[in-house]
């Protein structure tokens, strides 16, 4: 695995070229392209805010910020895995059949281009927070934002590992991507994206609440979405159907466990991918 990794490093220029090419196509060489790519999540966030506030009656001040802070990383998660399902048999099929290069370059460059897209979206998110702070005197950016690089690193590790699995499986089983769409749809409602994790916490049976909540945070996606919300925004206090919901602090132990899980997924995915990557050309 070490020598495979050294070979991958030798091909970093190819990764850079693929990322630039992907971003060029995505933004069609225009600034407008970037704003269009933001329009979809913003419309989603506006819709979910209305549903959560007026239908589910969860009353948290400035809720759209608490939603957006987890929704953007979720979109990063979702888009990256969807791209991964097509990255080998899709655009690069021809290249794969005719030229040698370390195959892992493909899923890795797809994760990186989605990461860049996510970071641009985060810039817009911070501008939005600043606007709220200055004009509406809402939630300012909290100092926990210093945790952001660590969270990004964890999510990238997780996504690289999962992308290795997804991209590889889709070569051998062409319906992987349909299964993936279904799984992502379910996962969206299971993870604390459109609602805060505290809502799960207060619903857990009191006797084993702490243990069950930690089990819940064992899922790295849950832990990450929760940590983005808690590190970038100040604690909230809200009401849902008469009950009061308080922000819990970040569970540092579980965040540490999450980092280990993400690293394990990355290494496991790489091993899985490497064991199969040289038969891709025969299937393409």
């Amino acid at each position: 695995m070490i020598s495979e990794f050294a070979e991958l490093l030798r091909y970093r220029e190819l990764v850079a070229q693929l990322v630039v090419r992907d971003l060029k196509v995505r933004y069609k060489n225009s600034v407008l392209g970037f704003f269009w790519s933001l329009a979809n999540p913003l419309v989603q966030v506006a819709t979910i805010t209305i549903v959560v506030k007026y239908v589910m009656r969860l009353d948290i001040p400035n809720y759209s910020a608490y939603l957006l802070v987890a929704y953007l990383p979720w979109v990063f998660f979702q888009m990256t895995l969807m791209d991964a399902s097509d990255v080998i048999m899709g655009h690069h099929r021809d290249l794969l059949r005719k030229v040698y290069f370390p195959r892992e370059v493909l899923p890795i460059s797809s994760v990186i281009s989605n990461l860049i897209h996510f970071m641009l979206a985060l810039v817009v998110f911070f501008a939005y927070l600043l606007f709220y702070h200055l004009v509406l005197h809402g939630a300012p950016v909290s100092s926990g934002a210093l945790l952001l690089p660590a969270l990004l690193a964890m999510q990238v590790m997780l996504l690289v590992g999962l992308s290795f699995f997804v991209s590889c499986l889709n070569v051998f089983y062409e319906d992987t991507k349909y299964l993936l769409v279904a799984l992502l749809n379910v996962l969206f409602y299971l993870t604390p994206v459109m609602y805060p994790a505290e809502l799960i916490y207060i619903r857990l049976p009191e006797a084993h609440r702490e243990l069950l909540y930690r089990l819940y945070l064992l899922n790295p996606v849950n832990a990450l979405m929760d940590a983005y919300r808690k590190s970038l925004l100040p604690p909230f206090e809200g009401h849902v159907r008469g009950a009061t919901v308080h922000s819990l602090g970040i569970d540092w132990l579980m965040l540490g466990v999450c980092a280990l899980v993400c690293a394990a997924v990355a290494v496991g995915g790489y091993a899985f991918f490497n064991a199969r990557k040289w038969s891709f050309a025969e299937r393409a």
Binding site: Y11, E13, L14, Q17, R21, V25, D94, L95, K98, V99
Partner: peptide, 20 residues
């Protein structure tokens, strides 16, 4: 044209092909 991308220019493709 292995390692060439149809939408990129010849020059861009030279860099891409060299990276490949």
């Amino acid at each position: 044209g292995a390692g060439f991308h149809p939408e990129l220019t010849g020059r861009e493709n030279v860099f891409f092909n060299a990276a490949v």
